[in-house]
Design a protein around this nucleic acid. Structure first.
Lengths: 237, 237
DNA sequence: ACGGCGGCTGAAAGTTTTCTGAGAGGCCGC
DNA sequence: GCGGCCTCTCAGAAAACTTTCAGCCGCCGT
């Protein structure tokens, strides 16, 4: 789906390490769909040997694993001389001592429960930072709409627009999927945390907020397809 | 990340000597990420031969090592004719006689536990002093904000401002990463000592102090990105 | 033209995040 | 040992954001 919009990073090899089968399935399916080359492991030791064999470009790693914990996994991987960047998945309570220092080597972390947009945004950001050479742009552009993933700045027709976190995530998702029709269910699945149990109306609300903030000038870019979903596109000729 | 902001020193070769695996990992990851070319050793003898082979521009050296102590290492290195500058890592009790006089030869030391900003600032300072030719500026400037790393003087709009040590470190970190969004976790990881176990609120407190002291005039430079972090930047156009 | 469904949006309630004043405790210099 | 600065914590207030709800509107099919 997002494959076309992530030209270089799309083919990046990810190793996803997570012992919860549901979450692993969720992650590998959607990351594959996003164009990544995904392999998986469900334990720390499996992860270490998988990393040795497949030399992933980035590891998505649950810190809580049945055997080794995530920090051990990284230690072992790096002892072998690998410098693979990591996005850690951690429990909500940031009081875990070891979480300190996670952002140091260009790595990052995402707390559970997360939204898929959040996770893929972090993955993109870390790959951007750690991939030398070909500079991935952090700026999404569609028509006269611009969104900078690093600085969180959004412009419409050159004007700076302030967005709340959810508005920002929703707009990024629409832009990454420009010209593709997205159902409310899809949007909910990607932009909201995976444990969200509210209904579709919240998507309508946020589309409404976004329209007010970034789609209040001609030409209109956010379109409703009644009974189907929403799409970001330039008006028909 | 900080790579772009350390143009010349960035490529400097460092040899990091430290026997504690956790701290070594912490150091090598973040110094590499800061753009240094890092090699490591975990014992004094290994350090001596590593220094012979790789001729680093600077050595980061734990004084307390399993075999030789740091001073021995340096003595052996220098017997071989090398005049590599050193930043020592020492235990808290600065009463150790040998530490006296360390700063005489252009070297310096940092006591454990340290913050990464503290260490990288010392490394920058020593490199600045010992690298002839291309003068690294010790003065950071952003808009009408100026910070001198050597004299610890800070000016906003030409006015001298007094900052406490932590305020100074925080501001320097923000300035070194101007226009880059920094999460509270990142700030904590870089500005606070690695054994700090408090929570994010302390970052908010210090941002508040800084705002009062250096950001109480227009235009505001320290901005909050709700749910994301802080950024030092000039207001939107 | 009518009724019904889907969508839009204002408003209110609920929640989270950030800001900041106050104060405890530690360290340092005198 | 005292006073002053500094760091860190706590808690309340303020602000921002999220979610829900309900009424309205307009499209669509009959």
């Amino acid at each position: 789906m997002a494959a076309q919009t992530q030209p270089k990073q799309a083919e990046a090899k990810l190793l996803v390490v997570e012992d919860d089968a549901n979450i692993l399935e969720l992650l590998s399916a959607s990351l594959r769909f996003a164009g990544f080359d995904v392999s998986t492991a469900t334990s720390g030791s499996a992860a270490v040997s998988a990393a040795k064999n497949s030399t992933p470009d980035l590891v998505v790693l649950d810190v809580m694993l049945p055997d080794l914990d995530g920090f051990e996994v990284i230690r072992l991987m790096r002892e072998g001389g690998q410098r693979t960047p990591v996005v850690f998945l951690t429990a909500r309570d940031g009081t875990d001592d070891k979480i300190r220092g996670l952002t140091l080597g260009g790595d990052d972390y995402v707390t559970k429960p997360f939204s898929l947009e959040e996770l893929t945004a972090r993955i993109r950001a870390v790959l951007r930072r750690t991939t030398q050479g070909d500079e991935e742009p952090s700026r999404l552009v569609f028509a006269d709409l611009e969104l900078d993933e690093e600085t969180h700045e959004v412009y419409r027709a050159g004007q700076r627009v302030q967005l709340s976190p959810t508005e920002f995530k929703l707009l990024r998702y629409l832009m990454l999927n420009a010209n593709r029709v997205l159902s409310k269910a899809q949007i909910l699945d990607h932009v909201w945390k995976y444990d969200f149990r509210g209904d579709d109306n919240i998507v309508e609300s946020y589309i409404s907020y976004l329209r007010r903030k970034v789609d209040n000038v001609q030409p209109r870019l956010i379109h409703t397809l009644r009974g189907v979903g929403y799409v970001l596109r330039k008006p028909a000729v």
